[in-house]
Simulated scan of single mutants.
Amino acid sequence: MTKANISIVIVDDHPVMLKGLQQELEHVGYQVLATATNGASAIEVITTNHPDIAILDIEMPFLNGFEVVKRLKALDLNTRYIIMSYHKEKGFIVQAKKVGVNGYLLKEDSIQDIEKCIEEVIKGNTFYSSSFTDDFEKTASEELRKIALLTPSERTILRLIAQERTSLEICEVLSISKRTVEKHRSNIIAKLELDSSAKTLINWVQFHKELVLSL
């Protein structure tokens, strides 16, 4: 497939970034069908235009990039999704893998990196910025594997911990005993392969907060 035949929608709430990326992509020969500046309008322009590729920022008004991808994936469109962000943290990569993002670029990446990503994603492959090492990606995938082992009850408690609820508050919200909460915490720690020190689970949850709140 030639560049001229690859259709793209760009979503970013930063006008300068949005315009700059559009100009760069059009300059090298891609077909930019439309742009959007927030998550709600992103869903509208993508479902209307059915692009081959949608390039999305993460942090946007109304819906973030991951929420947009999750909703659009449910519609079973043929569009492939590339996240472009300043965020390099492992939690964001884990979240990207969880929702089924096809590519993840950093806003500091060159147009050559963007072209390479588009090329691989169009082929049906995944592509992550060269700033991420193989070990980094493997670690992100490993966190997803661990989270998949949690029961629905354990995931609920993990979300409440991410909301900074105390054990007593979790007892009240879920109408369960403190002993039951502590048993769930112990199981979560074991499944996530964390050590049993008091702050370890809280620190893990804070580091992966975006992912945990989406469970």
Rank of each mutant, 00 (worst) to 15 (best):
G103A: 11
A74F: 01
D109R: 05
M84T: 11
K98W: 01
V101T: 14
R80V: 00
L72K: 07
K107V: 12
G103Y: 04
S85E: 13
D109L: 08
M84G: 08
K88T: 15
Q95F: 01
K90N: 09
M84N: 12
G103I: 12
I93P: 02
A74G: 07
M84V: 12
S110L: 12
S110G: 11
K88N: 11
V94L: 01
V94S: 14
S85Y: 00
I93V: 11
L105C: 14
N78E: 11
N78G: 15
Y81A: 08
Y104A: 06
I93G: 04
I93W: 00
M84W: 00
I83V: 14
K73W: 02
V99Y: 02
N78W: 00
A96N: 00
K73S: 07
L77V: 11
Q95N: 14
N102C: 09
V99H: 05
A74P: 05
N102I: 00
D109F: 09
Q95Y: 03
V99E: 07
K90H: 08
Q95I: 06
F92G: 03
Q95K: 11
D76H: 15
D76S: 12
D76I: 06
K73C: 01
A74D: 14
L105N: 04
K97E: 10
K107N: 09
A96M: 06
L106N: 10
G91D: 11
N78R: 09
L106K: 08
K97N: 07
D76T: 10
G100E: 07
A74H: 05
D76F: 04
R80W: 03
A96R: 01
Y86S: 12
H87M: 02
K88A: 13
Y81R: 03
V94Y: 00
I83G: 08
Q95R: 13
E89P: 04
F92W: 03
E108Q: 13
S110D: 12
Y86E: 07
D109H: 04
Y81S: 12
L72F: 04
F92Y: 15
T79G: 12
G91M: 05
T79D: 10
K73E: 14
K98C: 03
G91V: 00
G103W: 01
K90G: 03
Y86V: 12
G100N: 10
K98F: 09
K98V: 06
K73F: 01
V101H: 06
G103Q: 08
K90Q: 09
A74N: 11
L106T: 09
T79P: 13
E108W: 00
L106P: 11
G100C: 09
H87D: 07
E108R: 08
K90W: 00
L72T: 05
H87A: 01
V94N: 02
T79C: 14
D109P: 14
D76A: 15
E108K: 14
G100R: 10
K97M: 15
T79S: 14
L77W: 04
V99P: 10
H87L: 10
I93N: 04
K98D: 09
F92T: 13
K73R: 11
V101P: 13
I83A: 09
K97T: 00
K90F: 02
N78L: 08
S85N: 07
K98R: 13
S85G: 00
N102Y: 02
E89F: 07
G100A: 14
M84E: 12
N102K: 06
